[in-house]
Protein backbone atom coordinates (compact mmCIF):
# COMPACT_ATOMS: atom_id res chain seq x y z
CA UNK A 1 0.00 0.00 0.00
CA UNK A 2 1.25 3.45 -0.83
CA UNK A 3 1.28 5.70 2.21
CA UNK A 4 2.63 8.73 0.41
CA UNK A 5 2.42 9.61 -3.23
CA UNK A 6 3.33 12.71 -5.19
CA UNK A 7 1.99 13.40 -8.64
CA UNK A 8 3.86 15.72 -11.01
CA UNK A 9 5.02 17.68 -8.00
CA UNK A 10 6.87 20.86 -8.85
CA UNK A 11 8.22 23.81 -6.95
CA UNK A 12 9.86 26.90 -8.29
CA UNK A 13 11.20 29.93 -6.48
CA UNK A 14 10.99 32.84 -8.86
CA UNK A 15 12.66 31.47 -11.96
CA UNK A 16 14.50 28.68 -10.18
CA UNK A 17 12.98 25.23 -10.44
CA UNK A 18 13.84 23.44 -7.21
CA UNK A 19 11.72 20.42 -7.99
CA UNK A 20 10.34 19.35 -11.32
CA UNK A 21 7.61 16.89 -12.16
CA UNK A 22 8.31 14.57 -9.29
CA UNK A 23 6.39 11.32 -9.14
CA UNK A 24 7.30 9.34 -6.13
CA UNK A 25 5.69 6.86 -3.79
CA UNK A 26 6.58 5.61 -0.32
CA UNK A 27 5.26 2.22 0.71
CA UNK A 28 3.65 1.89 4.13
CA UNK A 29 5.87 0.22 6.70
CA UNK A 30 9.15 0.66 4.85
CA UNK A 31 12.28 2.67 5.48
CA UNK A 32 13.02 4.58 2.32
CA UNK A 33 15.73 7.11 1.59
CA UNK A 34 16.02 10.19 -0.48
CA UNK A 35 19.55 10.97 -1.60
CA UNK A 36 21.18 13.35 -3.98
CA UNK A 37 23.95 15.94 -4.15
CA UNK A 38 23.61 19.19 -2.20
CA UNK A 39 21.00 21.44 -3.74
CA UNK A 40 19.16 18.54 -5.36
CA UNK A 41 15.87 19.61 -3.75
CA UNK A 42 15.64 17.09 -0.92
CA UNK A 43 14.83 19.54 1.87
CA UNK A 44 12.51 21.45 -0.47
CA UNK A 45 10.67 18.17 -0.90
CA UNK A 46 10.31 17.78 2.88
CA UNK A 47 9.11 21.37 3.16
CA UNK A 48 6.44 20.63 0.57
CA UNK A 49 5.36 17.42 2.30
CA UNK A 50 4.95 19.22 5.62
CA UNK A 51 3.13 22.22 4.21
CA UNK A 52 5.79 24.88 4.80
CA UNK A 53 5.79 25.46 1.05
CA UNK A 54 2.80 25.18 -1.21
CA UNK A 55 3.68 23.36 -4.43
CA UNK A 56 3.76 25.35 -7.67
CA UNK A 57 2.23 22.35 -9.39
CA UNK A 58 1.14 18.79 -8.77
CA UNK A 59 -0.37 16.98 -5.84
CA UNK A 60 0.69 15.28 -2.63
CA UNK A 61 -1.43 12.37 -1.47
CA UNK A 62 -1.04 10.95 2.00
CA UNK A 63 -2.97 7.86 2.93
CA UNK A 64 -5.36 8.37 0.05
CA UNK A 65 -6.09 12.05 0.79
CA UNK A 66 -4.72 15.18 -0.76
CA UNK A 67 -2.67 17.17 1.76
CA UNK A 68 -0.84 19.80 -0.29
CA UNK A 69 -3.44 22.47 0.51
CA UNK A 70 -3.42 21.85 4.27
CA UNK A 71 -1.67 23.97 6.87
CA UNK A 72 1.43 22.45 8.49
CA UNK A 73 -0.31 21.66 11.76
CA UNK A 74 -3.17 19.90 9.97
CA UNK A 75 -0.65 17.78 8.11
CA UNK A 76 0.96 16.87 11.42
CA UNK A 77 -2.45 15.93 12.78
CA UNK A 78 -2.94 13.70 9.77
CA UNK A 79 0.19 11.82 10.77
CA UNK A 80 3.27 13.31 9.13
CA UNK A 81 6.10 14.37 11.44
CA UNK A 82 9.61 15.54 10.76
CA UNK A 83 12.96 16.52 12.16
CA UNK A 84 15.19 19.24 10.83
CA UNK A 85 18.60 19.30 9.19
CA UNK A 86 19.64 22.05 11.61
CA UNK A 87 18.10 20.99 14.91
CA UNK A 88 15.13 23.12 15.92
CA UNK A 89 14.20 22.35 19.48
CA UNK A 90 12.44 24.68 21.90
CA UNK A 91 15.77 25.43 23.50
CA UNK A 92 14.55 27.21 26.62
CA UNK A 93 12.06 24.53 27.58
CA UNK A 94 12.86 21.31 29.38
CA UNK A 95 13.43 18.07 27.54
CA UNK A 96 10.13 16.69 28.81
CA UNK A 97 8.23 19.84 27.84
CA UNK A 98 9.60 19.61 24.31
CA UNK A 99 8.06 16.18 23.95
CA UNK A 100 4.83 17.26 25.65
CA UNK A 101 4.39 20.03 23.10
CA UNK A 102 4.44 17.34 20.45
CA UNK A 103 1.43 15.74 22.14
CA UNK A 104 -0.58 18.92 21.84
CA UNK A 105 -2.16 17.91 18.55
CA UNK A 106 -3.42 14.63 20.00
CA UNK A 107 -5.27 16.13 22.96
CA UNK A 108 -8.64 17.73 23.28
CA UNK A 109 -8.75 19.84 26.43
CA UNK A 110 -9.48 23.44 25.65
CA UNK A 111 -8.98 26.66 27.57
CA UNK A 112 -12.17 26.04 29.51
CA UNK A 113 -11.08 22.81 31.14
CA UNK A 114 -7.58 24.18 31.70
CA UNK A 115 -8.95 27.10 33.69
CA UNK A 116 -11.59 25.20 35.59
CA UNK A 117 -9.38 22.17 36.09
CA UNK A 118 -11.98 19.59 35.15
CA UNK A 119 -11.31 15.91 35.89
CA UNK A 120 -10.84 15.38 32.17
CA UNK A 121 -8.08 17.98 32.26
CA UNK A 122 -6.16 16.11 34.95
CA UNK A 123 -6.64 12.78 33.21
CA UNK A 124 -5.27 14.17 29.97
CA UNK A 125 -2.48 16.01 31.73
CA UNK A 126 -1.15 12.87 33.38
CA UNK A 127 -1.62 10.89 30.16
CA UNK A 128 0.50 13.46 28.32
CA UNK A 129 3.32 13.34 30.85
CA UNK A 130 3.20 9.57 30.87
CA UNK A 131 3.38 9.23 27.11
CA UNK A 132 6.06 11.92 26.85
CA UNK A 133 8.17 9.89 29.29
CA UNK A 134 7.58 6.77 27.21
CA UNK A 135 8.93 8.55 24.14
CA UNK A 136 11.97 9.77 26.06
CA UNK A 137 12.62 6.26 27.27
CA UNK A 138 12.30 4.98 23.72
CA UNK A 139 15.10 7.25 22.48
CA UNK A 140 17.14 6.78 25.65
CA UNK A 141 16.72 10.21 27.22
CA UNK A 142 14.48 9.38 30.16
CA UNK A 143 17.02 10.54 32.72
CA UNK A 144 17.36 13.97 31.09
CA UNK A 145 13.68 14.94 31.31
CA UNK A 146 14.18 17.99 33.50
CA UNK A 147 17.20 19.40 31.74
CA UNK A 148 16.91 22.43 29.51
CA UNK A 149 16.82 21.18 25.94
CA UNK A 150 19.42 23.67 24.74
CA UNK A 151 21.98 22.26 27.19
CA UNK A 152 21.85 18.72 25.83
CA UNK A 153 24.79 17.29 23.94
CA UNK A 154 24.45 17.48 20.19
CA UNK A 155 23.64 13.83 19.64
CA UNK A 156 21.04 13.90 22.40
CA UNK A 157 19.40 16.95 20.82
CA UNK A 158 18.96 14.90 17.65
CA UNK A 159 17.34 12.12 19.67
CA UNK A 160 15.09 14.60 21.47
CA UNK A 161 13.93 16.00 18.16
CA UNK A 162 12.99 12.47 17.13
CA UNK A 163 11.16 11.89 20.43
CA UNK A 164 9.22 15.12 19.90
CA UNK A 165 8.27 14.05 16.39
CA UNK A 166 7.20 10.63 17.69
CA UNK A 167 4.99 12.28 20.30
CA UNK A 168 2.73 13.51 17.50
CA UNK A 169 2.02 9.83 16.72
CA UNK A 170 3.11 9.95 13.11
CA UNK A 171 2.42 7.32 10.50
CA UNK A 172 5.15 8.83 8.34
CA UNK A 173 8.34 10.18 9.88
CA UNK A 174 10.57 12.41 7.78
CA UNK A 175 14.16 12.55 9.00
CA UNK A 176 16.32 15.27 7.48
CA UNK A 177 19.98 14.26 7.78
CA UNK A 178 19.63 12.83 11.29
CA UNK A 179 23.29 11.85 11.55
CA UNK A 180 24.73 15.15 10.33
CA UNK A 181 27.64 16.10 12.56
CA UNK A 182 27.63 12.78 14.42
CA UNK A 183 30.57 10.46 14.96
CA UNK A 184 30.57 7.05 13.35
CA UNK A 185 29.56 5.42 16.63
CA UNK A 186 26.72 7.83 17.25
CA UNK A 187 25.38 7.38 13.76
CA UNK A 188 25.39 3.59 14.11
CA UNK A 189 23.38 4.01 17.29
CA UNK A 190 20.96 6.33 15.52
CA UNK A 191 20.59 3.76 12.74
CA UNK A 192 19.45 1.24 15.32
CA UNK A 193 16.98 3.76 16.72
CA UNK A 194 15.55 4.29 13.24
CA UNK A 195 15.10 0.55 12.85
CA UNK A 196 13.30 0.36 16.19
CA UNK A 197 10.96 3.17 15.16
CA UNK A 198 10.26 1.29 11.97
CA UNK A 199 9.41 -1.85 13.95
CA UNK A 200 6.77 0.18 15.80
CA UNK A 201 4.98 0.47 12.47
CA UNK A 202 6.08 3.98 11.51
CA UNK A 203 6.99 4.49 7.87
CA UNK A 204 10.26 6.39 7.49
CA UNK A 205 11.58 8.61 4.76
CA UNK A 206 15.19 9.52 5.32
CA UNK A 207 17.38 12.20 3.81
CA UNK A 208 20.95 11.17 4.47
CA UNK A 209 24.42 11.74 3.13
CA UNK A 210 26.03 8.82 4.91
CA UNK A 211 25.70 6.19 2.23
CA UNK A 212 26.67 3.27 4.45
CA UNK A 213 23.65 4.04 6.63
CA UNK A 214 21.32 4.61 3.68
CA UNK A 215 22.30 1.34 2.07
CA UNK A 216 21.99 -0.58 5.31
CA UNK A 217 18.61 0.75 6.43
CA UNK A 218 16.60 1.38 3.29
CA UNK A 219 14.31 -0.93 1.43
CA UNK A 220 14.12 1.61 -1.39
CA UNK A 221 16.24 4.57 -2.38
CA UNK A 222 15.13 7.56 -4.44
CA UNK A 223 17.77 9.75 -6.06
CA UNK A 224 17.27 13.41 -6.86
CA UNK A 225 19.56 15.62 -8.88
CA UNK A 226 18.83 19.24 -9.73
CA UNK A 227 15.20 18.83 -8.77
CA UNK A 228 14.63 15.80 -11.00
CA UNK A 229 14.34 12.18 -9.94
CA UNK A 230 17.10 10.34 -11.72
CA UNK A 231 16.78 6.90 -10.17
CA UNK A 232 14.80 4.74 -7.83
CA UNK A 233 15.35 1.21 -6.62
CA UNK A 234 16.81 -1.09 -4.02
CA UNK A 235 20.16 -0.12 -2.50
CA UNK A 236 21.87 -2.67 -4.74
CA UNK A 237 20.30 -1.26 -7.89
CA UNK A 238 21.17 2.30 -6.90
CA UNK A 239 24.82 1.53 -6.24
CA UNK A 240 25.26 0.07 -9.69
CA UNK A 241 23.27 2.77 -11.48
CA UNK A 242 25.64 4.75 -13.71
CA UNK A 243 23.40 7.85 -13.60
CA UNK A 244 23.69 8.02 -9.83
CA UNK A 245 27.43 7.66 -9.81
CA UNK A 246 27.68 10.33 -12.48
CA UNK A 247 25.45 12.73 -10.53
CA UNK A 248 27.68 12.40 -7.52
CA UNK A 249 30.92 12.66 -9.52
CA UNK A 250 29.67 15.66 -11.42
CA UNK A 251 29.22 17.73 -8.29
CA UNK A 252 32.66 17.32 -6.78
CA UNK A 253 33.36 17.95 -3.12
CA UNK A 254 31.31 14.86 -2.28
CA UNK A 255 34.22 12.52 -2.68
CA UNK A 256 33.74 10.87 0.68
CA UNK A 257 30.16 10.00 -0.21
CA UNK A 258 31.26 8.46 -3.48
CA UNK A 259 33.82 6.30 -1.79
CA UNK A 260 31.20 5.13 0.67
CA UNK A 261 28.86 4.49 -2.23
CA UNK A 262 31.42 2.18 -3.76
CA UNK A 263 32.29 0.31 -0.59
CA UNK A 264 28.96 0.04 1.17
Amino acid sequence: MKLLETKNLGMSFGGLEALCNLNMAVEAGEIESLIGPNGAGKTTFFNLLTGIYKPSMGKIIFSGERIDLDTPYRITQRGVARTFQNIRLFNNMTVLENVMVGRHCRTKSELFSAIFRTPQFYREESEIIHSARERLKFVGLLGAGNEIAGNLAYGDQRKLEIARALATEPRLLLLDEPTAGMTQGESLELGKLIQRISKEGVTILLIEHRMSLVMKLSQRVHVLDHGVKIAEGTPGEIQSNPKVVEAYLGVGGETQDIRELGHA
Partner: peptide, 29 residues
Protein backbone atom coordinates in the same frame (compact mmCIF):
# COMPACT_ATOMS: atom_id res chain seq x y z
CA UNK B 1 -1.18 30.03 32.68
CA UNK B 2 2.07 30.40 30.77
CA UNK B 3 4.08 27.97 32.85
CA UNK B 4 1.61 25.44 34.12
CA UNK B 5 -0.90 24.82 31.37
CA UNK B 6 -0.60 23.08 28.07
CA UNK B 7 -1.80 26.14 26.16
CA UNK B 8 0.87 28.18 27.90
CA UNK B 9 3.38 25.56 26.88
CA UNK B 10 2.20 25.79 23.29
CA UNK B 11 2.50 29.57 23.51
CA UNK B 12 6.08 29.35 24.73
CA UNK B 13 6.87 26.88 21.97
CA UNK B 14 5.46 29.29 19.37
CA UNK B 15 7.50 32.15 20.74
CA UNK B 16 10.70 30.12 20.51
CA UNK B 17 10.20 28.73 17.03
CA UNK B 18 6.88 29.36 15.35
CA UNK B 19 7.54 27.20 12.35
CA UNK B 20 8.80 24.25 14.36
CA UNK B 21 5.78 24.59 16.66
CA UNK B 22 3.43 24.42 13.73
CA UNK B 23 5.27 21.35 12.46
CA UNK B 24 4.77 19.50 15.71
CA UNK B 25 1.06 20.07 15.33
CA UNK B 26 0.34 23.30 17.18
CA UNK B 27 -2.39 25.41 15.55
CA UNK B 28 -0.26 28.53 15.50
CA UNK B 29 -2.98 30.89 14.28
Amino acid sequence: FVNKTRLGQAMRACSQDREAAELVGIPVD
